[in-house]
Design a protein around this nucleic acid. Structure first.
Lengths: 342, 342
DNA sequence: TTGTAGGCGTTATCAG
DNA sequence: CTGATAACGCCTACAA
């Protein structure tokens, strides 16, 4: 079992290594007979080519990597499936790589490019605060997909596709206002560091403002740092605290469905009713939102379209059909049972 | 940016490649001054070592791979986090690799072993039907964690940790019987192919039998093949069909919480009440189950303990402290609001 | 402490 | 159609 190599196979077959190589790589110029004989020996001896050696030697690889930050986010599950499907359909292979919260996705990408000779990269999730210069190090086509960004980049920097978090967040809060809510709480990320939470928070502020409502600090709640963020538990705890504070409010806007579910549970556990006592709204459009009881009013991101556009753009760039493209998809406000006119 | 190598760095620094190598690998025998100078040049030029070349040369690598089948299963999210933490704490690096449903996890592992010089492997999820011979090809320590298995292997074959799906499933159904239910529907996987669903289904059958209840074909429902399995949607559709069939029943046992949530929604949408009209029970112990409204009675798998035991056993085997170990954890029946005495 | 050279397992080039 | 042989980029004796 001690690691059999291509040389061993060659020796076993009484041929040269290059012939074996041709056999395993489906090269055209090889005798069918020798090829099948080689394949047989390979099967018998469980020979498996070493990918490191292959990658080292090869200059191209037909593989697209998807680097994903926050892999446990259920929002990405469907996304990954579609990306996978699309990539495979182009006869490329799909490499999913999770990026730790603390890691720098560009560095990870740089490493992977060298290691795997990537042809393209998709960045999923996270929040980009990288400089143009840093981004410029990536000498492989890439697309940012549903990643938050601090500044609005222009098309000469890179391609990206996502929804407009500010606008969609605004849309939701504005909707709540139009339903008659004046005291709308928000549950968001810590406002200290750059994140998608800030953008959605800004949409919230703007919507309040445009509806002539003064934001109240007491209604602006952040997820607990001590608990894992973006979890139902966090939403639950924060909402419970809010309820117990006796602060007056009639609606909660949670910046993610996961949090919204925690909020709902906290409200229900407190013996209150949704939407009669409190309205709850989420963001993302996860299955969980629509299957919850009551179903949760949310902003549904068009996952399918986002994923497809991501791959389309990526391949356009790979094939030099086009330069960078920016695509912002509109998201849909899905009205559930968790909100109502008051 | 055209791929700078260790040679370039060496030339740039006016030193030999081995000196550079020593610098980047923190070797002790190198002058601090030359080292820092080298590191500086490396930074300036954004040099990144090629992992393929490294892996090719190295014989060991201190990396543990976790191969996971069904990566979108939220049950694994927490699992992954703990595995990651545990592996890092042992100063090993953690490689998460998703295995497609159609792929053979052993083959994938074999490839990865060669490519990355793995020191250990954790298989997560899926259902093993491999032969001993196939398993024997793995010349690297590995542990099966929460993977279903057709036969009961003995300890000489491999290590594994999981809950006893038969027993736990039995426990749940028996509990429903004790609550007074006699007509208990089950939603499971297709009964054709080997899977964890079959085992849980068998537990269901046995529990019915021991409670003197004759199973009814009409109450045995399988997830739709046409819809992605293990989704709320699937649970919803199947339950809706069941309700519309006018078949008489008082409880539903779904073999996963995800399905149970779909079931609940279907029941609620039909204007029925849980648990007054129908009781619903799930399996897994996901957050969703307890945050749902009503909270769902389920079997909670001790994720934390399973993950920790997995790593412990793996390292025991790696360090030759022990031979294969089998650990079966008891799961907990968590009573929610979705069931009650009738 | 540092440099040189050989080899890790493949693939690709170029003669045969 | 097939077989040497030179890279691919790095690490590691071994020598200096």
């Amino acid at each position: 079992m001690s690691t059999i190599t291509i040389k061993d196979v060659a020796r076993l077959c009484g041929v040269g290594v290059s012939t074996v190589s041709r056999a395993i790589n489906n090269h055209p110029d090889i005798n069918e007979e020798t090829k099948s004989k080689i394949m047989e020996v390979i099967k018998e001896n469980n020979y498996i080519p070493n990918n490191s050696a292959r990658n080292l030697k090869r200059s191209n690889s037909r593989t697209i990597a998807v680097l994903i930050k926050g892999i446990s986010n259920p929002f990405f599950s469907k996304m990954i499936k579609i990306l996978d499907r699309e990539i495979q359909s182009k006869k490329y292979s799909f490499l999913l790589h999770r990026v730790d919260d603390k890691e720098d996705e560009i560095d990870v990408a740089l490493e992977l490019i060298k290691e795997k000779r990537l042809r393209g990269i998709v960045f999923l999730g996270g929040f980009f605060t990288h400089s143009k210069e840093k981004l410029a190090q990536l000498d492989v086509p890439f697309v940012l997909s549903t990643v938050g960004m601090a500044q609005q980049w222009s098309k000469d920097v890179c391609s990206f596709v996502a929804v407009d978090d500010f606008k969609e967040s605004y849309k939701m809060v504005d909707y709540l206002c139009k339903l008659g809510h004046r005291k709308i709480a928000i549950i968001t990320t810590s406002l200290d560091d750059a994140s998608i939470g800030i953008i959605r928070y800004n949409g919230y502020l703007q919507a309040l403002k445009d509806n002539g409502i003064e934001p109240e600090d007491a209604l602006i709640r952040c997820m607990k740092e001590s608990i894992e963020t973006y979890t139902m538990e966090n939403g639950y705890v924060v909402t419970k605290e809010l309820l117990e504070s006796k602060e007056e409010f009639t609606a909660i806007f949670a910046i993610s469905d996961i949090i919204a579910i925690g909020s709902c549970k906290a409200i229900l556990d407190a013996g209150k009713s949704i939407p009669n006592d409190y309205a709850v709204a989420g963001f993302d459009g996860l299955d969980y939102a629509s299957y919850y009881n009551p179903s949760i009013t949310t902003i549904r991101q068009p996952v399918e379209e986002i994923a497809e556009a991501t791959i389309k753009i990526l391949f356009d760039v790979i094939r030099k059909k086009s330069d960078h493209q920016l695509r912002v998809f509109p998201a849909e406000l899905v009205v559930g049972q968790s909100t109502k006119q008051i």
